[in-house]
Simulated assay, not measured.
Amino acid sequence: MNTKKIVILDDHRVVIEGVKTALNERAEFEVVGEEVNGASAVEMIRRLKPDIVITDVSMPGMNGMDFTVEAKRIDPGIHVVVFSMYSDREYIIDFLRAGVSSYVLKEEPLGELIFAVAAAARGGLYLGDKVSRMLRDHLSGSDEVCGEGDGLKLLSSREREIFILLAEGLSVKRISDKLNISPKTVESHKYNIMEKLETGSVVELTRLAIRKNLIRA
């Protein structure tokens, strides 16, 4: 059997342990590394040369999008599986454009992630049920195409990441600690986000995020 080497990247150790336990039950998978920092994970994949990487979106050091781009630059054949709480349609589309093999939401059963990893191992594409429905609605035109929140399309991947963290109630200091960037950089992103989304306060950002189903009320 051709065992696939896997690296797990998430800023929550409990998530890493849960995923590792599930994968270790499958003889065809071998977890060879785990990391909580995106920048450190880049060096890990250079060293370990895994077949598959499971990554979150929001992490210190380097976010999931930047990590995916860098991982694909280092090894175009690597399979990236995104396992995240973020259901923002623009996030998902951007990751698919970056060449990920799968996108699964953490709210879905862990079995969905295992299916996604198995599909990636075969060179296939797998999307979790909720992600698939969301994209089908978008492509069929039943999802909103214009109107409130269109400014979300103007946000960079880092700005969307910070937008959601702000909407979830995290302070500038906590965001800077979580993402390993300076408070001044967070403040700069915050200003740009509010300008692009035409909002005047964090409260308005939170209301917008709830209306767009990016966070739970």
Rank of each mutant, 00 (worst) to 15 (best):
R97V: 10
E108T: 13
R73I: 09
E90R: 05
G77K: 11
D75M: 15
V80N: 03
G124H: 04
C146M: 06
V82A: 04
E144V: 11
I114L: 11
S132L: 13
G99V: 12
S102I: 10
A120Y: 04
A116V: 10
A71I: 02
V100E: 08
G141H: 05
G99C: 12
Y91I: 08
L110P: 03
S140A: 14
S142V: 14
D66V: 01
P76L: 11
S87H: 04
E70G: 07
I92F: 06
D129S: 12
F115M: 12
V104Y: 12
R73F: 08
E70S: 12
E108G: 08
V69D: 01
L96R: 09
E144K: 14
R133V: 07
R97W: 03
S102T: 09
V117F: 13
L127Q: 11
A121G: 11
E144M: 06
V117D: 01
A120I: 15
I78K: 06
H79Y: 06
R89T: 15
F83Y: 15
V145T: 08
G147R: 05
R133G: 05
D66I: 02
L110V: 14
F83K: 09
S132H: 05
A120L: 07
R73K: 15
V100H: 10
F115H: 10
I92R: 07
L125A: 01
S87G: 13
M134W: 00
G141L: 05
A116D: 11
I78G: 09
L139F: 12
G147E: 11
P109C: 09
S101Y: 05
V117I: 11
G128M: 06
V117R: 00
M62A: 08
I92V: 15
G77R: 12
M65E: 00
G99L: 06
Y103T: 08
G64N: 06
H79M: 11
A98R: 10
V131D: 01
A118P: 00
V69E: 13
I114C: 00
A118N: 04
N63T: 00
S132C: 02
A120M: 09
S84M: 08
D129E: 15
E107N: 08
V81M: 09
R97L: 11
G111F: 02
I114A: 02
R97A: 04
R73P: 03
Y103R: 07
G99R: 11
R122V: 02
E70A: 14
D143P: 00
P76Y: 07
S101N: 14
P76V: 11
A98S: 14
